[in-house]
């Protein structure tokens, strides 16, 4: 009886292990396929011109996506400037003072916002920024992306600040340090590696967004550094070029996808490296 059930358990164990390994492998294989396809298709369009030249009109060969690379950094930069302070401060509020109804409401809204389709975020930014400003702009794009980033950063900051044990807070308070300094210079510092990781992941996430930019930042064939003017971004460029009928535009889209993925990958790796530095929790 006993040996029989032991055998049964071992078989079941094997089977379940196989299922888990299989699922993990499935995910990795898909990711690998996507990456390798983009590398194969994209790497061939990459050369120095690709990074420093502007797009050529239809029919002419060559050209690059310099304006879109610059544009993406500007738009994501604006989004980060807005979302990082708002997100981290909201996270501090929820973690340190969030034991009331108002905080539960904020937490709930943040979760709902996390689930809102990004195209809806784009429409919201269109209505509240583009329409009053009478035109598409880099600023509107940045605001749209920041709306997506804030809830992500808020919730990750909250979770990481909550992970700092209360004994650390008490140790700070017992030294006669005022509460705001305990939070800012001890608790936040203890959680900082994790918070930076969360921020980087949020940056990587919105860096790949197209929908919110379609009717906010719109597009621009020229190099632009102005925040009140439409601006080109890599994702919108990919969207336009990939759906165009011209093969050389399609190739540029593949090349841009390659560059974008590399940037996202680098941001992710940087965030991992940051997490592994000394003194983390």
């Amino acid at each position: 009886m006993n040996s029989f059930s032991y055998l049964k358990r071992r078989i079941l164990n094997r089977f379940m292990l196989f299922l888990s390994y299989g699922s993990a492998a499935f995910g990795v294989v898909i990711l690998f396929l996507i990456l390798s396809y983009i590398i194969i298709k994209g790497a061939s369009s990459i050369n120095l011109d690709f990074f420093i030249k502007l797009p050529k009109p239809t029919g002419e060969t060559g050209g690059g996506i310099a304006n879109a690379i610059v544009g993406s950094f500007i738009v994501v930069g604006i989004a980060s400037l807005i979302a990082i302070p708002v997100g981290v401060m909201s996270g501090i509020y929820l973690a340190e003072f969030g034991k009331n109804k108002f905080a539960s409401l904020i937490r709930y809204f943040a979760d709902v916002m996390n689930g809102i389709p990004s195209i809806v975020t784009g429409i919201v930014a269109y209505v509240f920024v583009v329409v009053p400003m009478h035109g598409f702009s880099a600023l509107a794009g940045g605001i749209a992306l920041s709306i997506m980033m804030i809830p992500i950063i808020t919730r990750t900051s909250e979770e990481l600040i909550k992970m700092v044990p209360d004994t650390i807070r008490e140790a700070g308070l017992a030294l006669g340090i005022p509460q705001w300094k305990v939070i800012l210079f001890i608790v936040l510092r203890t959680a900082s590696t994790g918070i930076v990781t969360g921020i980087m992941l949020a940056v990587a996430r919105v860096g790949g967004e197209t929908a919110p930019l379609l009717f906010t930042a719109f597009n621009n064939s020229f190099m632009s550094f102005r925040l009140d003017q439409p601006i080109s971004t890599m994702t919108v460029l990919i969207y336009n070029y990939a759906s165009s009928p011209y093969p050389d535009w399609n190739a540029i889209a593949w090349g841009s996808a390659f560059v974008l993925i590399i940037i996202v990958l680098v941001v992710n790796i940087l965030s991992k490296m940051f997490t592994n530095t000394k003194y983390s929790l």
């Binding site: 004994t167 008490e170 017992a174 030294l175 006669g176 983390s280």
Partner: peptide, 28 residues
């Protein structure tokens, strides 16, 4: 004026030995 040492040692994990001892002085 009334300091406290806790049951479980609770140094600040994100700080060096020096910074741990300096924390109270600096942040005050």
């Amino acid at each position: 004026r009334i300091g406290m040492v806790f049951q479980k040692p609770n140094p600040f994990p994100s700080m060096s030995i020096f910074e741990n001892v300096a924390a109270g002085i600096r942040l005050n």
